[in-house]
Design a binder for these strands. Structure first.
Lengths: 146, 146
DNA sequence: TCCAATCGTTAGTGTCACTAACAACGTAGG
DNA sequence: CCTACGTTGTTAGTGACACTAACGATTGGA
């Protein structure tokens, strides 16, 4: 009993659990929204990274997006099939591919960006705008340090 | 370009993405810690719920832990094998099972609780204690509303 | 030149979230 | 009292992710 009282209610305030639950919910919403246009979040991550940093090798994209190199292969395949990116061998280093975004890819990115903006608002709806900034700041600090 | 500038840097501050990344990291840490004693987070969720609310049916446990009833079956099987819980038919409603925690289960819960306390500190290490409370509060608000 | 590291790729593992279907059982309406 | 419907536990299966291992090709450094 003495042990129980210290544990009771812990479950509902356990930070790692809250993080998991909130992320699961957010991910579901994101996948619903992106699924509507045949995309998933990795597509956005890759396109947004190409937009920000320009053409890159798959290894570089893997680093920046945190998608494992092995999983990135399929993502690039999917984006290539839909002509959103192009994959060509790097003449400077024949181990590498150069992945670059097409005009269609840039247009698609704009669409995904608009969809994701809606989802952010939707997911963060229970919070004030101050609290949203706080949350973003705290999560960014966690992600940065680990 | 005009579109690009609005999108650039968005990826690193996108709340749903930060949530995903932080949760993935936290989950990995939790699974490492619990895996050391042959447990996973669902074990903790079930045991903690039994501790707080007492014996319950699987449907009730499913509601409280947010584990799908189909997945809960395996969790209860695992906990039963290790004698941490007992599953017996409910005489009052023969569709139901009554799941109750054993003394060994209570002891195991104490162990998991100590492990998880360490993990929380570890994961939240980059934040001040004020920020930790803030984060917990904000995440709890999100989870509660959805 | 030889060794180690890197790159893209394939294959496979385990966990989770989630759906569908089923038999057994309970409940409420007519 | 039946009948229709809902609930419970269970099995099976799907798909997304995170992650590991191994491989051939290529590159860079000692």
């Amino acid at each position: 009993m003495s042990e129980s009282t210290s544990e009771a209610r812990r479950l509902r305030t356990l930070p790692t659990r809250l993080l998991s639950l909130a992320a699961t919910y957010a991910d579901r919403r994101v996948n619903e929204a992106l699924g509507g246009v045949g995309a998933r979040k990795w597509h956005y991550a890759v396109l947004a990274t190409l937009d920000e940093f320009g053409s890159a090798s798959q290894a570089e994209l893997s680093d920046r997006t945190r998608i494992y190199r092995s999983d990135l292969v399929a993502v690039i395949n999917e984006l290539t099939e839909r002509r959103f990116v192009e994959r060509s061998p790097d003449p400077a280093d024949r181990r590498r591919n150069v992945v670059s975004m097409t005009a269609a890819g840039r247009h698609h990115l704009g669409q995904l960006d608009r969809l994701l903006t809606e989802v952010q608002d939707d997911v963060l709806a229970p919070l004030t705008s101050q609290d949203r900034e706080q949350l973003t700041r705290l999560l960014a600090a966690l992600v940065r340090e680990h």
